[in-house]
Computed example of a mutant assay.
Amino acid sequence: MHVVELRFECFDNTTITAAEKTINGLLEAYRANGQVLGREFAVAFKDGEFRVRLLMPEKSSLAKRFNSPWVERALCELTDAKLLAPREKYIGQDINSEVSSSETPSWQLVYTSYVHMCSPVRNGDTLQPIPLYQLPATYNGDHKRIIRWQTEWQACDELQMAAATKAEFAALEELTSTSSDLFRRGWDLRGRIEYLTKIPTYYYLYRVGGDNLTSEKARPCPRCGNKDWLLDEALLDMFHFRCDKCRIVSNISWDHL
């Protein structure tokens, strides 16, 4: 991933309120399209201009060819706030994040965790994140729905990892059950992505618990009952199960690995 600084210069008198609303609207449009990552953006005012540093999947993430209709609209609204189009200053590659996928995958999967800021759509051959703006818009011109799903998944993951309240059990149910609302929305989004990209797309179903390793290996696909979804070798050293009918990958319970 890469870090860039955007600078917004005023061309006429404006107000902090007007500039704040317009700049934040643009940043949210970029985020909804997967062009910038993260949830919070610190916008500073100095020497007559507004500055913000952003984390992006690729060096070219803010190129016009990737803009959604909502990004284009937000850019036009800068004029109403008496702001010029942003100037980009490339800072460099982020050393603490993953490299985005640049190859067309033979398969892909929907996968995230509470420690990941990157795209929840991964290259199935390498597990590298695929920038969302490289995919056809999933709904209403951008990727807001899958980003919202990712935020919900990460919230549940953080609750169950903390293991400090009764909310842990409700969060685990959302992450591990094929009857949960979180699974249903994520699995439907997975299907939408597969339909648009024509690339087999799987959903990662988190797994903890279970009695022992033997019973874990014998458990069937929780959605269709397929008993032959255990793989001879784990995919990407992580996924021990794959059901091609249900488009689900899963792991042997982390409690028994």
Rank of each mutant, 00 (worst) to 15 (best):
F11I: 11
T15D: 08
I16A: 15
E20T: 13
N24Y: 08
L26Y: 00
A29F: 10
Q35E: 15
V36S: 10
L37Q: 15
E40N: 08
V43H: 14
A44V: 12
D47I: 03
G48Y: 01
P57Q: 06
K59G: 13
S61R: 02
P69W: 05
V71W: 01
V71P: 08
L78R: 10
R87T: 05
E88Y: 07
K89D: 13
I91C: 05
V110H: 00
V115E: 14
H116S: 02
M117Q: 01
G124Y: 01
P129Y: 05
P131V: 00
L135G: 14
A137Q: 06
T138L: 08
N140V: 08
G141S: 05
H143V: 03
R145D: 15
I147F: 02
W149E: 13
W153R: 07
A155P: 02
Q160T: 02
A162K: 11
E168S: 05
A170W: 09
E173Y: 11
T178W: 01
S180F: 06
S180L: 00
R184D: 12
R184G: 09
R185N: 03
G186I: 00
R192Q: 01
E194C: 14
T197L: 11
Y202S: 07
Y202N: 00
Y203T: 08
Y206W: 04
Y206H: 08
Y206V: 01
R219Q: 15
N226W: 00
W229D: 05
A234I: 07
R242S: 14
C243G: 08
C246A: 02
V249A: 03
N251Y: 05
S253P: 02
S253Q: 02
D255A: 04
